[in-house]
Simulated assay, not measured.
Amino acid sequence: MHLLENSIRSEELLAKTINIKHRFYASSSEPLKLKDLLAITERNGDHQLIQAYHDHTLGYADNGGSLDLRQEIALLYGANISADNIIVFPGAQTGMTLCAQALLKSGDHAIIITPSYQSLEEGAKLAGCEISRVNLSPDDDWQLNIDAVEAAIKSNTQYIALNDPHNPSGALMSYETKLALIKLAEKHDILIFSDEVYRLLEIDPKDRSPSMAELSTKAIALSTLSKPWGAGGTGIGWVVCQDKSICRKLLKAQHIYAVCFSRAGEIQAMMALRGSDTIIGKNMQIIDDNLKLLEDYFDVNNDLFQWVTPRAGGTGFVKFKGPVTANELAEKLLEQEILVFPPSIFDCDENLSQYFRIGFSRATMPAALDAFKLFIDTQRPLWKKQRVG
């Protein structure tokens, strides 16, 4: 497969809507401003880090991430994860794709848990893999069926790729399911690639379980500053793995394809990580407030909409029960400058063809919801006539 053979569906849509008024799809947290980040760092008394930001050189950052940043990232994980188990990439997308390139080859088989972020699947395809999908279902509250994963395993299966917390549904895998998946993967000597970019955004922090990378040497975890911290502009993502032989392969891949990332971004990332309580606390308040608005709206309008209430992250997958398709609904919303992600973005199977993704992690969501409400109210009489007709 050529790198450009399959276009990234969301990017095609976003390129057409760069100045759209209502981004009702947005998944990353409220964008963090540099002045606010510096103020938080100042209040924390971290003057040396502020000085380092003003005095750093514009040379290359260390391949795989500077030690001080990797040490800071390691604090997000358990005692079995150190700086040596972390490879920093210029963003999560790069880490996701290069993991597949470094660890898979033509003739391998990969299992992709869907619906999912497109690049989870495209990276494995680009590496030459045969792909099987295991679909999550709202009938099971978007929980992974371990028996279905086991049934998809072949003699050449090398990789299981998943997204937890889950995008687009906002579901959260239970600790017991994680352990069952790890047991299955270890039995068949299969790597688990766990895209955990929404981790730390659990609606109830008590539901948070350890990262896959903490639980098994056969697991790799991905994260980034963009989702919990709203700091995607730092250009910092990372991969975590206990197996240092895998880390060495990823370090080599990072050096070949993405050696150059910003020391300024690294320092900003350390500021954000050290300010996590303040930054993520603020972002969770936005998510909690927005989620209440959405729950109230969908409860009142349950004749048209249905969803499984998200348990983590800032996205939800909503079923439209009206007389037009979810893709058509998204097109009509776009005419009103309201952008949601239709099922075509996720290449959904027929049973999910009436679902669309919304985002509720930003302070702009209430205005987007108001515009959405107005559109729905104007369409209701028309849809009622279509049903009667």
Score class of each variant (00 low, 15 high):
Glu5Phe: 11
Asn6Gly: 11
Asn6Lys: 13
Ser7Met: 13
Ser10Cys: 05
Ala15Lys: 10
Lys16Pro: 02
Lys16Ala: 13
His22Tyr: 06
Arg23Asp: 14
Phe24Tyr: 10
Ala26Ile: 14
Ser27Gln: 05
Ser29Asp: 00
Glu30Val: 09
Leu32Ser: 02
Lys33Met: 13
Ala39Phe: 14
Ala39Gly: 04
Gly45Ser: 14
Asp46Thr: 04
His47Arg: 15
His47Leu: 15
Gln48Ser: 12
Gln48Ile: 12
Gln48Trp: 10
His56Asn: 14
Leu58Thr: 12
Gly65Gln: 04
Leu75Trp: 04
Val88Asn: 09
Phe89Glu: 05
Phe89Gln: 04
Gly95Cys: 03
Thr97Lys: 15
Ile113Lys: 01
Pro115Trp: 00
Ser116Met: 01
Ser119Thr: 14
Lys125Glu: 05
Glu130Lys: 09
Glu130Gln: 15
Ser132Asp: 08
Ser132Thr: 13
Pro138Ile: 04
Pro138Leu: 03
Asp139Asn: 11
Leu144Trp: 02
Ser155Trp: 07
Tyr159Gly: 04
Tyr159Pro: 02
Tyr159Ser: 02
Ile160Val: 13
Asp164His: 04
Pro165Cys: 08
Ser169Lys: 00
Leu172Val: 07
Leu172His: 03
Met173Gly: 01
Ser174Gln: 11
Lys178Pro: 01
Leu179Thr: 04
Ala180Arg: 09
Ile182Pro: 04
Lys183Trp: 02
Leu184Tyr: 07
Ala185Phe: 04
Lys187Ile: 02
Asp189Trp: 03
Leu191Met: 15
Ile192Met: 04
Ser194Thr: 05
Asp195Pro: 03
Ile203Met: 07
Arg208Pro: 00
Ser209Glu: 06
Ser216Ile: 07
Lys218His: 15
Ala219Ser: 14
Ala221Lys: 02
Ala221Cys: 07
Pro228Cys: 01
Gly235Pro: 03
Asp243Gln: 13
Ser245His: 06
Ile246His: 09
Leu251Met: 05
Ala253Val: 04
Gln254Cys: 11
His255Leu: 08
Ile256Cys: 10
Cys260Lys: 13
Cys260Ser: 15
Cys260Gly: 15
Gly265Trp: 06
Gln268Cys: 12
Ala272Tyr: 06
Ala272Asn: 03
Leu273Ile: 11
Ile280Asn: 08
Gly281Asp: 11
Asn283Thr: 08
Asn283Phe: 03
Asn283Trp: 02
Asp288Asn: 11
Asn290Met: 12
Lys292Leu: 11
Leu294Trp: 01
Glu295Asn: 06
Tyr297Met: 01
Phe298Cys: 05
Phe298Lys: 00
Val300Trp: 13
Val300His: 14
Phe305His: 02
Arg311Gln: 08
Gly314Thr: 07
Val318Trp: 00
Lys321Asp: 02
Lys332Val: 07
Leu333Glu: 06
Leu333Pro: 06
Gln336Leu: 12
Gln336Thr: 09
Glu337His: 06
Leu339Pro: 01
Phe341Cys: 10
Phe341Leu: 15
Pro343Ala: 03
Ile345His: 08
Asp347Arg: 03
Asp347Ser: 08
Cys348His: 00
Cys348Gly: 07
Asp349Gln: 15
Asp349Lys: 03
Glu350Gly: 09
Phe356Met: 02
Phe360His: 01
Arg362Gly: 09
Ala363Trp: 09
Thr364Gln: 10
Pro366Glu: 13
Asp377Lys: 10
Thr378Glu: 12
Arg380Trp: 01
Lys385Asn: 08
Gln386Leu: 10
